[in-house]
Design a protein around this nucleic acid. Sequence first.
DNA 1: ACCTGAACACCGTTCAAGT
DNA 2: ACCTGAACACCGTTCAAGT
Lengths: 182, 182
Amino acid sequence: MRPPLDLEHIVTRALALLDAYGLASLTMRSLADDLGIRPSALYWHVENKQTLLAAVADRIVSSASASAELGVGVGAAARAVRAALLAHRDGAEVVLSSAALGLGGLGVAERMRDALGGDGQELAAQVLAQFVLGHASLVQQRIQAATLGAYDADPDAVAHEFDEQFDAGIDALTRGLAITAR
Amino acid sequence: MRPPLDLEHIVTRALALLDAYGLASLTMRSLADDLGIRPSALYWHVENKQTLLAAVADRIVSSASASAELGVGVGAAARAVRAALLAHRDGAEVVLSSAALGLGGLGVAERMRDALGGDGQELAAQVLAQFVLGHASLVQQRIQAATLGAYDADPDAVAHEFDEQFDAGIDALTRGLAITAR
DNA sequence: ACCTGAACACCGTTCAAGT
DNA sequence: ACCTGAACACCGTTCAAGT
């Protein structure tokens, strides 16, 4: 007799399947299979697929907190969030499309707000979150396109270009938004 | 006897259905229904749903060209692209997720490059495109959440906040990326 | 050239019923 | 409390066949 499932474990397995096979293959049926239950049993633990994905998004964003502790600069916090998004297959897409529910997506802006100090920096936090999510989404799009074969160039060179673009964007935004670096 | 369909018309109807019912409801079956054919007939005109959506994305981005003619500033070009994305339901998501195929999503960076002058501004064009797409995606996420009921505040106030954020972001980027305004 | 008919291999979700 | 069984109403896509 297997112990009953809890949401934590379900999210853990969902994230593992996401990393292994990608978002398109992460179905309620494949997840149930992985957990050794029937698909319908998932609906005792979770309201629907959308909220499950929001919980996965939350987990992804939260994983950036270890590296981005209080007191780090905005740039470091942004880099930590970017790394967390890119660390999981289709991570940016999952987080971006769960933003509506308050989980996951809002978390990115929250993290930026924390790193900024919090008072009167709401606008800057939102702008930074918008850039980080747009950037990470396009990076992962490109990675996927390359995986599917269609693309041209040396992956290392491409990765380096993206790194440059991210740094340039964060740099311009932190300076241009008149953020008091700490 | 209806005249045979062409891709132009198919994309036009797909865009109309997108505006009317949203991306989740835009299926090959509903599109075929709208066109008065069977779903399988669509596959004579189009390789698969993904490339169809890429053509829709292309159309959305292209619709920004009328307002963003050659010679306008980067800010005006960015505003035109943003307006085009927000003019269609789920427009940002469609464009963002088609970016991998070279159509649609790449088009945003292209447009930025054109407005910038084109030589040695590749990095700036990419960074601007990343911000514009991230921003528009989050705006539409929020709109959708509000439509589904869950949300709080005065829509006009929210819209104004997003406008401010966009302007602040574009302003900071154009200045911070050392772009020669024209 | 352009489209239909029929099928294949899937989805998310609901709900009564079991234990 | 937690899960199964069976069903409902869908998907995208393929392919032989019609005209």
